[in-house]
Design a protein around this nucleic acid. Structure first.
Lengths: 338, 338
DNA sequence: ATCTGTCCCGGGAACGGTACCGAAATTTTT
DNA sequence: AAAAATTTCGGTACCGTTCCCGGGACAGAT
C-alpha cells in the first residue's frame, strides 16, 4: 500500500519485458535465461519490490497460514504448545493465526468460522471446556480443510489427533501416592465430557482398583474453575467425615491453593497429606514443600500436531494418525514421605 | 477450495443477473431493488455462499487483520495483553495475527517483515529485550502502516505509545519498603536500554534519594534471565558484606525463587528481609508468606493500544498519542512488618 | 411528445500475481 | 542446408471480488 509499492508490472515495464518473464525470474523458474533473471532480481532489489501476497493467495488459492484454536493463551500449557506450533510452522514458511475460545463453545464456533473464511490451509484445534459436540468441525472436514486436534481432542472425529497418555500418567501418579502410604486419595476431576478428564479419572480409579483400595465417591470432586471453588471443595473434603491423606489435583495452582489452605489449618505436607499437581510449572521448585507434579509435553505436542498437519496439507491424503506423547511424573517433596 | 465453493458468479448465473448486482445485493448497496436483494440473499444462503476473503482483500487492499509482535506468549503479561487486543479487535471485525520475537531482535525483524508482507492493516508491538535500534520500525512507518507500541515502547519513534507508570510505581514500591523499615534495599534491574527498566531503576533511585537513603551500587543487580542466575545474584547479595533487608524483584517468579533460597538459609520473611515482586501472579496469594507485588494492567494496555490503533487506521491521521495506564501496588505479608 | 430525474442493472476494468500455450530465436541434429 | 529440438519469452486467461460508468425503463414534469 502506501505511496506506490512497486509491482511485477513496473519491473517488466522498465526492463521492457513481459510480466510473465518477471514472475518466472523471481520464482526461479527454469524458463528464463540467467542474464534476464539476474537483471530482474537486481532491479527488484533496487525498487524494493515486495510481492503482493494477497494477489498470490488469490491466484493460488492458498494462504500459507495455519489456523489455531485454543482455549486460552493465558493457560501456560497452550502458550507453550503455541510456541511449538509457531516454530514448526514458521520454519516451513507458514504463518499462524491464533484464536482463543475462552473455553466457550460459541466463541470456538466463531473462531472456526473466521479462520475458514480467512482460507487458512489447515487447522490445529484444542477444544474448549464446554465443547460437547462436533458438528462445526465436521463442517470443516466436509470442506476438505486439513484438521488436527491436540491435547483436548474429539475422539469421535476421523482426523489425526495428538494427545498425551492421561490414563497412564494418572495411573502412575495415583500409584505413586499409594506407594507413599496414602489410603484415602482425593481426586479433583475436570469436566467428564472431555476425553482427557475421563482418562485421568479412569487412571485414578484403575490404580486404586489395582491396589485394592476402595473407591470413595466422597473423595472425588468436580472442579468448575470458578473463583473460590478450590476453597469450597477443600473444606468439603476435610470437614466431612474422615479427611484424605493424599490429593491428586487438576493443576498446580489449585494444588498450591489447597496446600496453602491446609497449612493454615496446621496440617503438615506431605506427612499428613501428600499432594500431587499437574503441569509442572516453574513455581513448583520454589514453594515449601516443593510440589510434585506431572510434566505435560506441551511444546512437543504443538510440534507433533503441526508436523502432522503440514504432512496432511502437502500430501492431500487423509490420515487418521494418532500420536501419543508421553508425560512425565516429577516427584518432589510434597508427595515424598520416605 | 474443496469441491466447489459457490461464488458470486454462480449466484448471478442461476438467477440470470449480473455479478455486480449480486455484489451490491450482498453488500446492502442501495442500487438494487428489494426484490432482487431478497432473492440473492436467499439463494446465497441456500448455496452456502461464503465470500472469498482473498479476492476482497486483493481488490480493497485491506485485510482487516492486525499484526501483533510480542516477546513471548509464555509471559503472562503478554498473554493477558493479547487477550485485550483480541477482544477489541474481534468486536471491531478485525482478525489478529500474533508473532513472537522470543526476545530476540532478529526474530522481531523477521516478524515485522512477514506481517508487512501479509499486508496487515496495522501493527501492535512490544519490543524484545534485545531491541536497541528502531530502523526496522521506521521502515514500516515510512510505508504508512499504522503502528502502536505498548509496554515495551521505543520512545524515540513518532507513533502512539501505551505504557504504564513504571517510574511512579517503582518509586511507590520502594517507598513502601522504606516505610516498613528497610534501610538496605536490593534492586533487581532489567536491561537498561529498555525504557521500562530505566524508569523502574530511576523510580527506585529517586525514592531512596527522597528518603535520604544512600544508594549502594552493590545492592543493584542486573538480571540476565538465564537459568541459575537468580541463585547467583542472591548469593552475591547476601554473602558479600552486609546483607540487604529488603528486595525489590523484577518479577514474582524471581522473587519467589529468592524467598525460597533465603528461607533455606534460615532467614525470616518479612522480618529479616521484606520482599516485593512484580506482576501480581495468582500464585502470590498461595505462598507463605503471601507475596506483595505490583499489578500490571496488561489486559487494559492491550485494549488501549488496540483502540488507538483502530482509530489510527480509520482516521488515517497521524497521532503521537501517549497513553499512561496506572499500575497498582498490592501489599501482602512478604513486605508488611507492622 | 420531449425532457429530466430516479431507480436498477450490466459491462468491464481493475487488484497483482501465476500458469498455460504457442511462438520466436537459437542451437543441435540429420 | 534443412529439419528438429531446445531455450527463452510474450500473450492472455484466470483467481473472485468491488466499483465506476453508462444505459435502459419508467415515472412525472414541461
Amino acid at each position: 500500500m502506501s505511496k506506490s509499492d512497486s509491482t511485477i508490472r513496473d519491473i517488466a515495464r522498465t526492463l521492457g519485458i513481459s510480466k510473465s518473464t518477471v514472475s518466472r525470474a523471481l520464482n526461479n523458474h527454469y524458463d528464463v535465461s540467467q542474464e534476464t533473471a539476474r537483471k530482474v532480481k537486481e532491479l527488484a532489489l533496487k525498487m524494493d519490490y515486495q510481492p503482493n501476497v494477497l494477489a498470490r493467495q488469490l491466484k493460488l488459492q492458498r494462504t500459507n497460514t495455519l489456523g489455531v484454536i485454543i482455549p486460552e493463551t493465558i493457560n501456560r500449557f497452550f502458550a507453550k504448545a503455541v510456541g511449538g506450533i509457531q516454530e514448526v510452522a514458521n520454519s516451513a514458511g507458514y504463518n499462524v493465526m491464533i484464536c482463543q475460545s475462552n473455553e466457550t463453545l460459541t466463541l470456538e464456533q466463531n473462531n472456526l468460522q473466521t479462520l475458514m473464511s480467512s482460507k487458512v490451509d489447515g487447522l490445529l484445534v484444542s477444544v474448549s471446556r464446554q465443547t460437547d459436540r462436533s458438528d462445526h468441525f465436521q463442517y470443516a472436514i466436509n470442506k476438505d480443510i486439513p484438521l488436527v486436534f491436540f491435547d483436548r481432542i474429539l475422539e469421535e472425529l476421523a482426523v489425526p489427533q495428538v494427545y498425551s497418555d492421561n490414563f497412564d500418567i494418572s495411573f502412575q501418579g495415583t500409584e505413586h501416592l499409594i506407594q507413599q502410604g496414602c489410603k484415602r486419595i482425593a481426586f479433583v476431576a475436570g469436566p467428564l465430557h472431555l476425553f482427557n478428564s475421563r482418562n485421568r479419572l479412569n487412571g485414578y480409579l484403575e490404580a486404586l482398583k489395582a491396589n485394592n483400595i476402595p473407591v470413595l465417591e466422597s473423595l472425588i470432586v468436580q472442579a468448575n474453575y470458578q473463583a473460590g471453588h478450590v476453597q469450597q471443595y477443600t473444606r468439603h473434603l476435610f470437614d466431612a467425615g474422615e479427611a484424605p491423606d493424599g490429593i491428586f489435583a487438576i493443576n498446580d495452582i489449585s494444588a498450591l491453593e489447597m496446600m496453602h489452605i491446609l497449612k493454615m489449618r496446621g496440617l503438615q505436607i506431605p506427612r499428613d497429606v501428600a499432594v500431587l499437581g499437574f503441569n509442572n510449572e516453574v513455581i513448583c521448585d520454589f514453594v515449601e514443600p516443593t510440589l510434585s507434579s506431572i510434566e505435560h509435553p506441551a511444546f512437543d505436542m504443538g510440534v507433533a500436531a503441526t508436523r502432522i498437519l503440514l504432512k496432511q496439507i502437502s500430501s492431500k491424503e487423509i490420515t487418521q494418525q494418532k500420536e501419543l506423547i508421553k508425560s512425565r511424573l516429577v516427584i518432589r517433596e510434597s508427595s515424598r514421605r520416605y
